[in-house]
Amino acid sequence: MVIPTTLDPTMASPGKHFMSCFVQYCPPKVEGRDWTDADRDAFAETVIKQIAEYSPGFRDRIVHMEVRTPREIENEVGLTEGNIFQGELTFDQLLFNRPVPGYAQYRSPIDGLYICGSSTHPGGGVMGAPGRNAAAEILRDLKRPNELMSKAHDVI
């Protein structure tokens, strides 16, 4: 749970706040079937109820609320099954296994087509490293020098 407006008040009208929550666990399917709007609303209610236990009166302060289950995340930003890391960060999908063995070098089975999402090494989170690493590999294939590449951090 974070309240970014405590750092950047311009995100909301004066006196108002914005709060964002990541909630565990929320599988891409509910008992084997797709999420429905009713499921989503019920889950939201569970979450609000729990927050209200820690913060009395919380419910009455809500002006507007948006809930994104893996279904919404997949629909809105195209993340398969709503996985924010584009694939589990378990050993069988890390390092030389990311995203799959044999294609962990940002190259794909198709010449000239490269991959550089969170699904590639070193994985998800806002770090820019997969993109930067992929760019270095592309430069290598083009036989171009890469010493002028910026640090991922500077770009972001």
Binding site: T90, F91, D92, F96, P101, G102
Partner: peptide, 18 residues
């Protein structure tokens, strides 16, 4: 062959269910 090596390095720490 390379494929078997890759499979081993992928699978050895997996869970049996997957």
């Amino acid at each position: 062959g390379r494929g078997e090596g890759r499979d081993f390095l992928r699978m050895m720490l997996m869970n049996v269910a997957d």
